[in-house]
Simulated scan of single mutants.
Amino acid sequence: MEKRGLSERVRVLTLSVLIFFPSSYFFSAFYTESFFLFLALLAFRFWGNDKRGAAYFIGGLAALTRIVGVWIPLAFFAERLIRRKLDAKDFIWAALSSLMFASYPVYLWLTKGEPLLFLKVMAPHYGRYSTLPFSPIYQDIVSSIQAGQIEPISIFHLILFLIFLSYLITTIRKQQKGTAVPWSEFVYTFGLILMPLSSILKQANNFPSHGFMRYFLTIFPLFIFLGKHIDQALIRVNKNSGSTLFIARKLVIYFILFIWVSVSLYIILVLRFKGFVA
């Protein structure tokens, strides 16, 4: 963010949104989110420093950490393709990244006799099945209507999806205005939203798109996007400091921040008490 010239306040706001995200407790639990986010940031850091080989390699490691990691080398390859800068090295490094990911199916084939076991095990044991892209958000709404009550988790899923749509629209508008767009981050974001929203959970007392809050955590471009827009909102409020509604707007913003942080801390403390997080 500093390399892009973003202000210190934007950087602080971005990290604050990530730290106090309602599902950020997964970073302290026995899940892959924290390590995957580290690898993703490291890969994009190498990519930004024009160290393509290292970026593709780290992307391959991310794909071994979580299946959605395949979008990292794919994002790099797509950006080179869009910018018409593809060369032989991109094909070689992308192929090597693919071989790294392919090592896991080979391992499963040798040990379990089923190379695609990681795709099949979720259905019978966890009730997760493939579905049409983005339909889990629709299913959330339908489930709430059928239950006769609005579930907070469904509302939050919808908010996150709207943030994603806003990011897409903003990026496309930038491209139309001739502004440089980091296509690798765009492809990465789209892929990491598409995959979790292409499956549903069919279990009792669980909403179909359960898990979206967790999967959203590692999509760092969306947190930068949120940090920048929060900063712009604060700037607009300060510009209207002479307005009679200035104090009311300030109080609303701080109240929302207070509720946001309080809910996040409450969730972490409850889970810490139950031994779920470190």
Rank of each mutant, 00 (worst) to 15 (best):
S198E: 06
P196L: 00
T218R: 00
S209I: 12
S243Q: 01
F216N: 00
L245D: 10
S241C: 13
L245W: 13
Q232G: 15
I200T: 14
Y215C: 06
S184N: 14
N206R: 14
G211L: 02
R214N: 02
Q203H: 10
F255Q: 02
I193H: 03
L257Q: 14
S184K: 04
V237A: 07
Y215E: 12
K250Q: 15
L194E: 03
I219Q: 07
F258V: 12
I224D: 15
P221T: 07
F255H: 04
S198H: 08
N240C: 07
M195V: 15
K228V: 11
L201P: 01
I230D: 09
A248Q: 12
Y254P: 02
L201Q: 11
L226R: 06
V237H: 02
V252F: 04
T218D: 05
G211H: 06
D231H: 13
V252W: 00
F223N: 04
A180I: 13
G242A: 07
S198V: 03
F212R: 04
A180G: 09
K202T: 15
Q232W: 12
R249Q: 14
G191Q: 07
A204Y: 13
R214E: 06
S243I: 06
A180K: 09
L194D: 00
T218F: 03
N206A: 15
L251H: 07
A248T: 13
K202Y: 15
M213S: 11
D231I: 01
K239I: 05
V181C: 01
F212H: 04
K228W: 13
P182W: 04
F207K: 10
T244V: 13
P221N: 14
L217F: 07
V181R: 04
S243R: 02
G191E: 08
K239Q: 15
V187P: 01
L257R: 03
Q203I: 14
I224W: 14
K250F: 10
L226M: 13
H229C: 01
R236D: 12
S241L: 10
N238G: 00
S184H: 06
I247H: 09
F223K: 03
N240E: 08
I219Y: 05
H229L: 07
K228Q: 13
I247W: 13
I224R: 15
H229M: 06
A233G: 05
N238M: 01
S241M: 10
V181K: 12
L192D: 08
V181A: 01
F220S: 15
S198Y: 05
M213D: 10
H229Q: 13
P196E: 09
I219H: 11
D231R: 01
S243D: 02
I256K: 00
S198C: 03
T218C: 05
I200E: 11
G242F: 10
Y215H: 09
T244C: 08
S199G: 05
F223Q: 06
